[in-house]
Design a protein around this nucleic acid. Structure first.
Lengths: 297, 297
DNA sequence: CATTGTTATAAAAATTACTTATAATAAATG
DNA sequence: CATTTATTATAAGTAATTTTTATAACAATG
């Protein structure tokens, strides 16, 4: 079996057209015909039913091979990236802003003490985006905030904390007097939230759906501080995980009394098959140790 | 990248010797040298440090590639087997004897009603063995009894029941009078158990270790009935999951009052990437439906 | 110091993959 | 309804890749 043939095959199944597949790879059309024949010979089964003037049909055997082909091609591509990364001597860390704000200062301190702060490179995005980047080999390590502990075969997850979401309001907001706050009471309030791709929005959407209304969005931003300032100035109310630190003279956090309030699950994630060089291992050990210490206090 | 080169590489890492690797594949020695060079070129990194007269050393990059190489080679091999199996039009089912005894009769009935009893082939072994066979593509579907819900990336698991283990004794065994039975009271009793590779033995070993003694084994067999007959005749006492049906006039089941008695977790398992043909899918649907019905009653 | 066991290199041979040219044929077009 | 277009297949030749053969290089061993 030949990885190039598998690549042809994957694209052929996508495009359902030999000629265009050939064009896609800048090879001649018979190349695709022959590649498919090689595969079919080796598998001892027809993979694609050629309907010269209708859509090609992928057989059961074809679908079976397709699954493995995708995994094989993915592996072969990612291994090149991972090896390139081993030489880079840096660890590329994905870091959602909320987690950065809460957890990263002591980590940076410890790394600096070990002369390793130069050996990391951070990427601030929403968790959804970071997970994709991690899978593509664009980053090597990610902090992720998720709603449920996700389950992905290619990713190793290490959960280290979970916190309920709370409502953040300005010190003098009248919601402060409501000591039995349920989400449905927020129907007419303006929210200031992160831009799309952040998990807070998913949680908010979930609660809103349960309560059968669409929350009013006053403003969306990428940065935590900007949102907190707006909350303090009563531009809108916020929705963050409970432990986000704020100035208590300006902002208060209100627990939701709804049953089953979604939780912000925080994890560290790496690719299952990633090998790290000694520097990278050292950095990861320090991160895990620091997170462990924080959790103990 | 070339799957054959990856195979060479995996064996080279195992044997740490170019010449013997060449012999292993019935090719000439330079073939291995050149294959490794191709890989190193493509990866842009040294994979193996050649110490002509000492052991070869695998670099970090080499270890990184090795992980992917193993997955790729495994995928390419299993896909051939799975495609061959699609044409077979039979579903090869692994079935540990205890689960067979408890759950299989109604499944066989439903399959027969649908004219599908000829389309299955059953393999009776211990769960440990069956899991290995499933992973190697020798069977396509397995019932498994495990102690903890196992976690394997290549295997999809669907748990359908868990039962505590109990002690099975003959009607007139004096243990029947002990209404507060703990495992440590069984120190001097003879057990009749399955042969090795069955999960009951693991659970027994676990309890024994906790209680710091080695259980006395009077006899080991592959068949449930033979063991039950011996228990009825007081050759020894048995250790099975609680719902195994017995003749209540001959054998009684005694619950263990130990805290945290191990449980027999029953699951259905398939390979994650396996594609099934319509007949196989039908059979699996019927099995799952039947199991579902049993659980409802 | 010749022998053994090992990996590397170069050139030739064998194999495999790809291209060019063309056939075949169903669908679309005018 | 003949013609054109779009598509896949086949055959022969070419190109590229992989493997072999033959040999070099060289450390360890006795």
């Amino acid at each position: 079996m030949n990885i190039r043939d598998l690549e042809y095959f994957i694209t052929l199944v996508e495009l359902k057209n030999f000629s265009r597949t050939a064009k896609h790879f800048h090879v001649s059309q018979p190349t695709i015909t022959l590649a498919l024949k090689r595969l079919e010979n080796e598998m001892g089964a027809q993979l694609i039913i050629r309907n010269r003037y209708q859509r090609l049909i992928v057989t059961d055997s074809g679908r079976q091979l397709l699954k493995h082909a995708k995994q094989i091609v993915k592996s072969s591509q990612i291994s090149k990236k991972e090896i390139a990364n081993l030489k880079r001597k840096k660890l590329r860390i994905g870091l959602p802003p909320i987690i950065e704000a809460e957890y990263f200062a002591p980590i940076a301190k410890r790394l600096k003490d070990n002369g390793l702060l130069q050996s990391i490179e951070t990427f601030e995005f929403g968790s959804e985006n970071l997970l994709k980047q991690l899978k593509q080999g664009k980053i090597d390590f990610a902090f992720l905030g998720t709603l449920n502990s996700l389950n992905d075969n290619d990713i190793d997850l290490h959960e280290f904390a979970r916190k309920p979401f709370k409502i953040f309001v300005s010190k003098n907001n009248r919601l402060n007097n409501n000591h039995n706050l349920h989400f449905k009471a927020l129907k007419d309030y303006d929210f200031v939230i992160f831009k799309n791709g952040f998990i807070q929005n998913e949680a908010l959407k979930m609660l809103a759906q349960r309560n059968k209304f669409t929350p009013k969005i006053a403003f969306q931003s990428y940065t935590t501080n900007s949102l907190l300032n707006m909350i303090a100035d009563d531009v809108g109310i916020g929705f963050f995980m409970s432990s986000l630190t704020v100035d208590p003279n300006r902002i208060t956090k209100l627990a939701l009394k709804d049953h089953d309030v979604p939780q912000f699950v925080m994890s560290m994630a790496t690719r299952h098959l990633q090998v790290f060089n000694p520097i990278q291992r050292k950095i990861i050990d320090i991160i895990k140790e620091t997170i462990g210490n924080i959790n103990e206090n």
